[in-house]
Simulated scan of single mutants.
Amino acid sequence: MLPPMTTAQRRIYETTGNPPQNDALDDPTDPFPAHKQHSLSAGATKPAKYRNTKCEHDGIKFDSQKEMSRWFHLIQLKASGLIRDLRLQVPYVLTARKQRDDGTWERASKYVADFVYFDVDAGKEVVEDVKSVATRKNRTYIQKRKQMLAVHNITIKEI
């Protein structure tokens, strides 16, 4: 038996053959009401997309603990003289800002490397990005990685 319907619900049912849905909000016996299933409690934040934990050390902000750990390792390599000119969050322009035919501007496309340094043994500059297995598969990252190779002839070292 169908639950009681309003006139509008009955007309929709007669036209489509689809009965109206029961509203879980009105069922006092429902232990998991719909309006409470996906809400965040006050003060709670949404977890990061890739489950990373943002951190900070000496005023430097890192996107993950893995990235901060890599920074400490690179600091040790610099102290031992294996690398030099260590830099953080280095931007590279992939496509320059351009004006469209209608006069509006298309924003420049950039890639921001986690770490850039000069490897003394290899004798070349290294561009590093700390990536998890999941973030290495990110389409946007893959496209920017390819553009870095095409535009700047730089292969990104993924850690």
Rank of each mutant, 00 (worst) to 15 (best):
F32I: 02
P28L: 01
R70N: 10
Q76E: 13
P28S: 03
H35Y: 11
S39I: 12
L77Y: 11
C55M: 14
K36R: 10
R70I: 11
A44Y: 00
E67Y: 13
F72S: 06
L40M: 10
F32G: 00
K54P: 09
T29L: 09
A79I: 08
T16W: 03
A44H: 06
G17C: 03
M68G: 02
T15I: 07
S64K: 05
K49V: 14
G43H: 10
A48E: 14
W71V: 02
P31Q: 05
P47D: 12
P33D: 04
D58L: 13
Q76N: 10
C55S: 15
E67H: 11
P19L: 01
G17M: 01
K61L: 13
L25D: 13
D23S: 05
T45E: 06
S39P: 00
T29V: 05
H35N: 12
P28A: 02
P28T: 00
S69A: 15
Q65K: 14
G43Y: 09
K66N: 06
F62Q: 03
N52W: 13
P47A: 12
E56M: 15
T16F: 04
K49H: 14
K46W: 12
Q37P: 00
E56K: 14
C55L: 14
L40R: 11
T29R: 05
E56G: 09
D26I: 04
Q65S: 08
T45D: 01
Q37W: 00
T29F: 09
D58Q: 13
N22E: 08
A48F: 11
L25Q: 10
A79F: 07
D63R: 15
T15C: 00
K36Q: 07
S64H: 09
F72W: 11
I60G: 03
G17D: 02
